[in-house]
């Protein structure tokens, strides 16, 4: 199976207080930020690796895992981290962060999918910076491919995938014909959530994403890293989503003490307007 995994780097979610808005409020200041791969995208890469191996032989790949990101040169370190964990090759589409939105990325990915011809596109269900949760869905629509979002379980089943989708109140099981687009949720990296046809049903993975071993980190720079221009993948690069202004979230206001229940109800009704 050939799997394409688009991923995005995001400002380190554990260090969110470092995220600042430029003085004119036009954009998020990106210089000096600590970057991390979007966690859900990391899970997508782990899922792709699990789908292209026998779990007992994680060094041998049955198929190909290609990772792609859109961004400036410094994003290559994010791609390399994925090559180090086992992805076969990487593609960086040259772009600045503020030249992109979900619509444009999805259209460029469509073109890339036509070139790469993967059997499966795996994405994180959303990026934890903008939280727009759009790219996977738009891409599936543009390609006319079947789609399953928020996957917590994937089992290879002949030419199809059995996908357990996380929904309110439980899991919906779907059978998805390949080629397809699947976005993954947190529980996809549980020990018994992904099985390729090579991995035996009683095999259990370690919880979470795999580590990049040191030798693999050093060898990762020898793996292919192609650089494409955004214009090669999308002719119309105008943004559909406009961000007129950014502002940091307001600090929480201090609480108020109320005399009695009546005052509480009054405030909830007339001030907080939640009743």
């Amino acid at each position: 199976m050939k799997v394409l995994v688009p991923l995005k780097r995001v400002a380190d979610p554990d260090n969110a207080n470092k995220v600042k808005v430029t003085a004119d409020g036009k954009k998020v200041e990106t210089t000096g930020l600590e970057w991390k791969p979007n966690p859900f995208d990391e899970y997508a890469v782990e899922t792709a690796l699990r789908l292209t191996e026998d779990g007992t032989k994680p060094k041998t790949r049955a198929g190909e895992v290609v990772v792609v990101t859109f961004g400036p040169k410094e994003c290559e370190i994010t791609l390399r981290a994925m090559l180090a964990t086992g992805a076969d090759r990487a593609i960086r589409v040259e772009a600045e962060d503020d030249q992109l939105d979900g619509w444009l990325v999805a259209r460029a990915l469509k073109k890339l999918v036509e070139q790469e011809k993967p059997d499966l596109v795996l994405l994180g269900k959303q990026a934890v910076d903008g939280d727009t949760n759009q790219v996977g869905q738009i891409l599936a629509e543009l390609l006319g491919w079947p789609m399953a979002t928020s996957a917590a379980m994937i089992k290879e089943d002949g030419e199809a995938l059995l996908v357990g989708r996380e929904v309110d109140g439980g899991v919906i099981n779907l059978k998805v014909r390949l080629p397809a687009v699947v976005t993954v949720d947190l529980r996809i990296v549980a020990p018994a959530s992904v099985y390729s046809k090579l991995t035996k049903a009683d095999f259990k993975y370690n919880e979470g994403v795999r580590f990049a071993p040191l030798p693999a980190i050093m060898q990762a720079k020898k793996k292919p890293m192609a650089v494409l221009k955004l214009a090669d993948l999308a002719t119309d690069t105008a943004l559909r989503i406009q961000y007129p202004r950014f502002e940091p979230p307001k600090g929480r206001a201090a609480g108020k003490k109320v005399k009695d229940v009546a005052e509480l109800v009054d405030k909830l009704k007339n001030e907080a307007k939640v009743l």
């Binding site: 290559e76 370190i77 390399r80 981290a81 180090a84 979470g208 580590f211 990049a212 040191l214 980190i217 050093m218 720079k221």
Partner: peptide
């Protein structure tokens, strides 16, 4: 000769991940 700045950064962040987990 086999080392570059990016290697060092990646090694340190991966090592950190490893020791924490």
């Amino acid at each position: 000769e086999s080392w570059a700045e990016d290697d060092v950064r990646m090694v340190l962040s991966e090592c950190y991940k490893f020791v924490c987990e």
